[in-house]
């Protein structure tokens, strides 16, 4: 996966925000994370396979998800709804990525995680984590590509 491929995911998320809430989010200084992902209250993962395998995820605190949902007109904010919402967001990212990448990569069905629990599937050990600030709250977009060593271990 090249820088451009990775950048495409950032663009997709930015565009998603711009479309849904009519406002581009502020992208903070990214970090490279070497420890297991620090997931927030609601997370949506999509796994990617192709020339390189990896994953893309978005994770957000409850108040971020609630505000975002309210902006779309939904006033309820129970766990199931918020989880569905994050899943839908990941799903939109996935389908946009499928459109852009064509057959180059296989994009999995999104998986959602609630309560900061660690994913029950393997995630690249080194990840690019981009904080997304919107209305004073911060979500994170995570991108990870398995290293060749990880890929060998997994196979």
């Amino acid at each position: 996966m090249t820088d451009n491929d990775l950048k495409l995911f950032v663009d997709i998320v930015s565009n998603y925000f711009a479309k849904i809430v009519d406002e581009a989010p502020l992208l903070d200084e990214p970090v490279i994370e070497f420890t297991p992902p620090k997931l927030l209250d609601y997370s949506g993962f999509i796994q990617i396979s192709g020339s390189d395998d990896g994953c893309v995820y978005i994770t957000m605190p409850r108040n971020f998800a609630v505000s975002f949902l309210r902006r779309t007109g939904e006033m309820a904010s129970d766990d199931a709804l918020l989880s569905d919402f994050v899943g839908e967001m990941a799903s939109t990212i996935a389908s946009n990525a499928r459109e852009r990448f064509g057959t180059q990569f296989k994009i999995s069905v999104p998986r959602t995680l609630v309560g900061g629990q660690q994913p029950p599937f393997s995630v690249p050990g080194t990840r690019f984590v981009l904080p997304i600030r919107w209305e004073g709250r911060t979500a994170q977009l995570g991108l990870g590509v398995f290293s060749s060593v990880e890929a060998v271990r997994a196979s």
Binding site: D3, L6, E29, I32, F34
Partner: peptide, 29 residues
């Protein structure tokens, strides 16, 4: 963002064990 991703592309090739042994858990690009 592309420049930052290029930095990631390099660091994903660095053995993670070495990074963690140097007590680096996250790296602010």
């Amino acid at each position: 963002i592309a420049a930052q991703l290029a930095v990631y592309r390099v660091f994903r090739r660095v053995p993670r064990e070495l990074v963690l042994a140097d007590n680096i858990h996250t790296l602010r690009i």
